[in-house]
Design a protein around this nucleic acid. Structure first.
Length: 681
DNA sequence: GATTTACGCCTTTTT
DNA sequence: GGCGTAAATC
């Protein structure tokens, strides 16, 4: 585990002025790059060169002598964004300085590193080998707590999980949440009851959920003067990407890093704290589409108030899209009340009109898209297209139509590699090897493959564990000692325990390469044998996936088990979207943020779909849907098609559709509404 | 303890 | 209309 803290405090006076990294930038971008100290908010409109700005700023800080690479922390929301930025900074500095020391990571992986090094000092019982619990597992824990409480509502686990997650991201703890929820709805009351038990369950498992990663890091910095000040002094230059998507905890973390001790008091910071440091937050309130995940773009709107002396720079030149597309997006977003003043101007020049088509039904809509894409590609070979929709179930019809049209496509979303059952199983074994108290991992694999330890046995072990306040693994050891279970169960448990201990010795043995360890786990546990026995095609695929897991471990030369597990927990499907080789990409609008395509279809532009029926309540929700539509439109570079349907089939039934209000908010003169599906050739 | 059948669900989801 | 979970059966 690499530690962050090993360097002396930040310098420094600039060695020499360098204008090397501002050539080719527009005046607003230059201003943002050439501001080496102080708080800076950059409002970066869609397609305004945000990544360019961040990477050039980092390069300038280093090459200009304002900072050493190790003084810089840049946080993003996805591993993909972090990776791309690292690559570009390295290119910019190629041959002279190295960007290797720059800490460029996601909020979550940054926090994991900090916590692996210091979490014991929180004194709450977690150790540095804590497990990371994903959303799926955390819902599972909540489900079992609810079951114990005699609550068997099917929606409850997910609802409660999201309420608890929301509460944690707002900085609430079980006590404050309980007090604030006395008079609220059913799920809220349930959540208030589950919350403390959930927290205890994670602690006993020596596990942290995604929210904890942020929360406990903030807790550590708040409680430990030493680490707060060490990290504050270490990172004099902090950059935050997608600032509109930060939540309260992330904001608190940024404050602690930027201001150190001063962040504890609820007072404005004196301006001299910025003498040798900077905080640069980059975002676009028009693209805030994650409030359902507790992100709060009002944090960004309050930047100037929070950081006195802050400068705000707007990047309003759009290099991506034609005038028509930018015009439509501007007109649409103008209908939102809560937003900062900002008008995107296309510098890409005029293009063709936006196309709007009203089709009979979903099938015709799909055929229309496929036909138009073929037509465009015939005219401009190599053109890349995207089909964007609000909800995943819309993808089906398009897949079918694209297949028939002979167009290759890729779908973003769905099950990621590390979300597949067989991968999660093997990862669960590995987690258990590192952290024996991980009762979630243990529950997952204790009878996978089947080894005669059934639900009844596991249930008894878990009850004992709960009653004694110990982990399930400890309960297994206890049961074996006291012989408190039927003979058959004990025999099965005995050999399970021996298996895990054997594997653990293997894992702790220095010099065993990780791929070999994973191979051993796959074979020794009988996992592979059970897949070989199963003659189905699915079992075959699973074996292939496990092979990929071994290759993934082999690809990272010399990676340790700890790092591999962290990687597996924090990597997402989004990150794997590389090499857009297919001519057509299908995805939700959410997944498309940050991407661009010459040809874009935004489909299903109907009331109840976009805006979604569940968002029709409050005005704020409609505004979020409008921002979602804004994100969709601004993905397009040259050609944009908006489609809707007269009759939409939902869950078997047929529904008459109504044109989305967002279509009506786009000026008519920008739109060619006479698009028809011509009979297929 | 494993296999089958029926029931009930159906927004988005950076980590 | 299709999928995943959960009770019911062998």
């Amino acid at each position: 585990m690499t530690e962050y803290l090993d360097s002396s405090p930040c310098p420094q006076t600039p060695a020499s002025f360098s204008d090397e990294f501002i050539t080719g930038l527009n005046p607003a971008q230059r201003e943002a790059v050439l501001q080496p100290s102080g708080p800076l908010l950059v409002l970066a409109g869609a397609g305004s060169g945000k990544t360019r700005l961040i990477t050039h700023r980092i390069a300038h800080l280093i090459a200009g002598g304002y900072a050493r690479p190790t003084d810089i922390l840049a946080v993003t929301f996805t591993n993909k964004a972090a990776g791309e930025m690292r690559e570009r900074v390295e290119q910019l500095l190629a041959g002279r300085d190295s960007a290797t020391g720059v800490v460029l990571s996601t909020f979550h992986s940054f926090c994991v590193r900090v916590l692996r090094a210091h979490i014991t000092e929180l004194g709450r019982g977690w150790t540095g080998s804590f497990s990371i619990t994903d959303q799926d597992d955390s819902t599972r824990v909540i489900k079992s707590i609810l079951k114990e409480m005699g609550e068997d509502d099917k929606q409850a686990p997910k609802a409660v999980q999201s309420l608890i997650s929301g509460a944690k991201n707002r900085g609430e703890n079980p006590e404050t949440y309980y007090l604030s929820q006395r008079k609220s709805g059913r799920y809220e009351q349930l959540a208030a009851q589950v919350f403390p038990r959930y927290e205890r369950a994670l602690l006993v498992s020596n596990a942290l959920d995604f929210d904890d990663l942020l929360l406990r890091t903030v807790e550590l910095f708040r409680s430990s003067e030493k680490w707060r000040s060490r990290y504050h002094h270490r990172f004099c230059h902090v950059l935050v990407d997608e600032y509109q998507d930060t939540n309260k905890i992330q904001y608190e973390l940024i404050r602690l890093l930027a201001a150190g001790d001063l962040a504890l008091a609820d007072e404005p910071f004196p301006s001299d704290i910025w003498d040798r440091r900077s905080l640069c937050c980059v975002g676009d309130d028009f693209q805030a589409i994650y409030s359902f995940r507790a992100a709060d773009f009002r944090i960004m709107l309050g930047f100037a108030r929070d950081f006195t002396g802050a400068r705000t720079i707007k990047l309003e030149a759009n290099y991506r899209s034609t005038e028509q597309i930018v015009g439509a997006a501007n007109a649409l977003i103008a209908h939102n009340k809560t937003r900062l003043e900002k008008t995107l101007v296309s510098v890409a020049g005029p293009g063709s009109q936006i196309n709007h088509a009203l089709l009979e039904d979903g099938e015709e809509e799909a055929r229309f898209a496929a036909a138009k894409i073929s037509e465009h590609i015939r005219r401009e070979p190599g053109l890349k297209a995207a089909i964007l929709y609000r909800t995943n179930f819309l993808s089906r019809a398009f897949e079918e139509a694209l297949r028939r049209a002979g167009l290759k496509y890729q779908i973003v979303g769905g099950l990621g590699f590390y979300e597949r059952a067989e991968i999660k199983d093997i990862v669960a074994y590995l987690k258990l090897l590192r952290n024996e108290d991980d009762s979630l991992a243990l529950a997952r694999i204790i009878n996978t493959p089947a080894r005669g330890i059934g639900d009844a046995t596991l249930e008894k072990l878990e009850v004992t564990a709960r009653e004694c306040g110990i982990s399930t693994w400890e309960a297994v050891c206890l049961a074996l000692q006291e012989r408190t279970l039927p003979k058959r169960a004990l025999t099965a448990l005995e050999s399970f325990k021996a298996l895990i201990e054997r594997l653990r010795r293997e894992a702790n043995h220095e010099g065993v390469p990780l791929p070999d360890l994973i191979r051993t786990v796959i074979t020794e546990t009988g996992y592979e044998a059970s897949l070989i026995k199963d003659k189905s095609e699915e079992a075959f695929n699973r074996r292939q996936n496990l092979g990929e897991l071994v290759s993934a471990a082999a690809a990272e030369q010399g990676e340790r088990l700890d790092d591999f597990l962290d990687h597996a927990a924090l990597v997402s499907d989004q990150d794997e979207l590389e090499g857009e080789t297919s001519p057509v990409t299908l995805m939700t609008i959410h997944a498309s943020k940050g991407l661009e395509f010459p040809l874009v279809f935004v489909v299903g532009l109907e009331e109840n779909l976009l805006p979604h029926s569940r968002s029709l309540g409050a005005e704020e929700e409609i505004e979020e849907e409008r921002r979602l539509c804004y994100v969709a439109l601004t993905r397009a570079q040259k050609y944009l098609y908006l489609t809707e349907v007269k009759e939409r089939r939902l869950y078997g039934g047929c529904n008459l559709s109504e044109t989305s209000r967002f279509i009506k908010e786009i000026p008519k003169d920008l739109v060619d509404a006479n698009q028809r599906l011509r009979p297929a050739a």
